[in-house]
Design a protein around this nucleic acid. Structure first.
Lengths: 345, 345
DNA sequence: GTGAAAGCGCTAACAA
DNA sequence: TTGTTAGCGCTTTCAC
């Protein structure tokens, strides 16, 4: 702990010298790979413990070209659905002795690109990404550097873009079908910004194509794109409610906005689901703790995070191809959406 | 992109050869530290760009002993107050070209210790930790390896444990004072598990000492420790309400549990704040989107995250001592807490 | 302003 | 089973 003097951690050389073996042997003991004489092993382990030797992953990684680092990039942590996802990824990585580099892109492709470059510089062995929407340049960057990546939150359906996800269109379809089956025709949409969020885009596409299927035309005044904030959902709802013919149902492509919408209805004295049905997406824990309880689409965020991490790690360990998995989603029927009332037609 | 054949990224040697300079010069160009002939610089930069050269931080870190890695350890991401904190830390680190290693300890000191050891192996330059409650061994581990660390979410008041935080006791006191001033005396507490969470412990201590200050004795039946889940808060409230003399006010040491409690009141037909006042802690975005809106203590989670990251980075860059900052908290008065009604006495 | 060369702390042939 | 010896890709004196 001498200060002033440059501090030097114990290295394998120090351990080797004191245990009267070569660094190669110390390395073998530490990695437990090759057989080592039990006597020798014990001697080395003792010295390691005595000095609280900590392995240097930088040096190790440089020599083996394996950093035991995985990069995880998500658009935000504020929407807690991504937090659940990230936590599960981290836990899965951790359990396999991988360490997670965290990057939050804030929905910016520029920012994401910067993070990816930085992560590659740190020699991540793989990358877990959100969505598939990024410049070709970014994909080239990963391929050029031979960094395997897996896409989450969006099912790509492409061999060259392995993904662990659910199907946003199908999931959104589950919500829309529920509304149609209960007689709703004037249905509003509140969703994320489709120009920076391909998950929102797919959900919106499902909304639009379901309308078309039912012979309905798209009413732009019934569609609101906004940020992942309760307040944004509230304002969107406010606009919808102030129309001469307000929608009888709203599909909110995430629960945050759905709860904002719900709140606005309460504030405006509009009863849910009697006067307007609201259906969400994500099934956040909070969604059973609002009044009325939110009918919503459950997405397997934690499972997706875990599977994505496990998939890349298996790929790294065994060379097995990266998975392309489509996870199921389920509509969770609670109280915020119901049948169309005749008087509301 | 030859496959089968071991893939080799371009190295500075490759760049150097092609630009007809030494690797030293490439290094100088890349770091822009020492002056380099503009001609030479241009030539090098051109080759760098041509091959999309990516710097190897592992090798660089090994040579300089500076990894540009910062470790961030939090107990959970599920409680979105920590997510906001983590996101702000990450952003601040990112803006200074640092990369964040994420660790989620799940309130386990063992798990945290493992993460810290792993992070030290990756040669993090500093650590941002949550709370101060960990075995001496863990602190020794950090000091032995000369890894500076800063504590958040808890103000240590100790020179040797720099912290960027608010004061949990004062903050909890703000909530309790509000209740006392409005006549409440039978006050319940719902909080996190104090044996694994020193923030919850300090808040509980504030609760207890405020009672004492007012000549009140602690009623164990009025105190519930539970997990950070809405449902846990709900159940705790249920128990309180079923008492022969239910509390007239509840202090919930986090908003998650407060919202659970609020929901239980609604379910039980107990009016808030008329029959029971509820006051939360954290001021999550959701707290204005519940009914009634939650009176709560605002904590500067994002600012704390940013300041903690900035502090360690400044320390690393300039040698300036780590900050010990106490951030203010504010009681946000909304609708869930009010004056004691005589009939409820 | 630039290059040569010796490391940083580890691993992995290859020999012994 | 163990040691020797080159590196891994970068930085950094020290000369020139």
């Amino acid at each position: 702990m001498t200060k002033g003097v440059a501090f030097r951690r114990k290295t394998m050389r120090d351990i080797a010298r004191e245990a009267r073996v070569s660094t190669a042997t110390v390395s073998r003991v530490l990695n437990g790979s090759v057989p080592v004489n039990p006597e020798t092993r014990k001697r080395v382990e003792q010295v390691v413990r005595k000095h609280h030797f900590v392995f240097d992953s930088l040096a190790g990684g440089l020599a083996t070209r394996r950093s035991r680092l995985i990069g995880l990039i998500i658009p935000t942590l504020i929407n807690s659905i991504y937090a659940a996802f990230a936590q599960a990824s981290q836990a899965a990585a951790q359990s396999q002795r991988y360490t997670v580099l965290l990057g939050v892109s804030e929905f910016s492709p520029k920012q994401e690109e910067r993070l990816i470059e930085q992560f590659i510089a740190h020699r991540v062995e793989a990358l877990i990404l959100t969505g598939a929407d990024r410049p070709a340049r970014t994909y080239q960057q990963m391929r050029r550097n031979q960094v395997p990546f897996i896409i989450t939150w969006k099912s790509t359906g492409r061999e060259d873009l392995p993904s662990v996800s659910f199907d946003n269109r199908l999931a959104a379809g589950q919500a829309m079908r529920f509304l149609f089956e209960r007689g709703h025709r004037r249905i509003g949409l509140i969703c994320g910004r489709t120009e920076v969020n391909d998950r929102a885009r797919e959900r919106r596409e499902a909304y639009e194509s379901m309308l078309k299927e039912h012979g309905l035309s798209l009413n732009p005044g019934l569609v609101h794109e906004c940020d992942f904030e309760f307040e944004a959902g509230r304002r969107a709802m406010q606009k919808m409610l102030s129309r001469r013919a307000p929608p009888t149902a709203i599909f909110c492509a995430n629960d945050i906005q759905a709860i904002g919408a719900l709140t606005q209805c309460r504030a405006a004295g509009v009863r849910v689901p009697e006067e307007v049905s609201i259906i969400g997406f994500d099934d956040l824990p909070i969604s059973t703790f609002v009044e009325p309880q939110l009918t919503t689409v459950n997405v397997p965020a934690a499972e997706m995070g875990r599977l994505a991490a496990e998939s890349v790690i298996r790929h790294l360990a065994t060379g097995a191809p990266l998975d392309s998995i489509i996870l199921p989603t389920t509509l969770v029927i609670r109280s915020s959406a119901g049948a169309l009332r005749s008087e509301a037609k």
